[in-house]
Amino acid sequence: MATRSTATLRPPPGDDEGEGSAMPGERPRPFLRRPRFATVALALPVAFMVLVYAYPVGAMLLKSVTEPEFGFGNFGRAVSDATTWHALGVTVRMSAEVAVLTVLLGFPVAYVLARVTARVARILSVLVVIPFWTSVLVRSFAWIVLLGDNGVVPRLLSPFTGDTAGLLYSEAAVVIALTHILLPFPILIIKGTLDQIDDSLVRAARTLGAGPVRAFLRVYLPLAFPAIVSSGMLVFVIGLGFYVTPALVGGPKESTIAVVIAQSVQVTFDWGLAAALATMLLVVAVALTLVVRRLTKVKGLVSL
């Protein structure tokens, strides 16, 4: 079975679409053509994804215009609701802060990882990848321990603040925890790009009269820039839709969009509103991701 007939591959002479049009002088085609094995190999996974993934997401999107009645009422409500705008503001602000912080902290690490020997880089990478592989829930829990009343961080800060009251359930707590959780992304992405930069370029700049700082700023950094921007945007996108950490370490006043969505589903049972918010979130996430993909190819996060 699964014999791929070479005839199916052949574009008919002088005619790219006319599959059946037997032209004079053209060889008759084999009568029986089975689908190519590769096509089957692709069709089955695609069918699975349509059924198990595209259908649920599509159904959800549909609910935004059909629940409780057909129309764009849900979007109207979402846009006119002050809490939505507040949640949106909080979400965008926090995501932006986290994106900037992770890039600022991640770049030096990526730089060092890209410039030490392969062996050392491998060992240090484990320190980056272990947090990456640790459950988001566990890492959020860690910050509850660290930032809670009488936790390590409030006590370290007590000489300045005067008390040991916790920082939990605040925007700051969410930003700190999210920075910790998303930091591996910029490190791994930027390192991937820095690995490609030829070291001799900086040396060449030095021989041409640039000091170490100027060589870095004028030669090295511009080459790293696309990765820096795209990893920052990736963090921003992930931050927009993040649910676990804001729900656990954030306070009720700083609900993010994801938290509002979950509440609409589980507490107020306003499925239409939840679906409308989720639709908007999805559109923004997809759009920003496409921009990121334009800027650089983000890949290779599965392994070191």
Partner: peptide, 8 residues
């Protein structure tokens, strides 16, 4: 053999 698969 014009239309035959390589393995044949």
């Amino acid at each position: 053999v014009t239309d035959e698969v390589p393995e044949k």
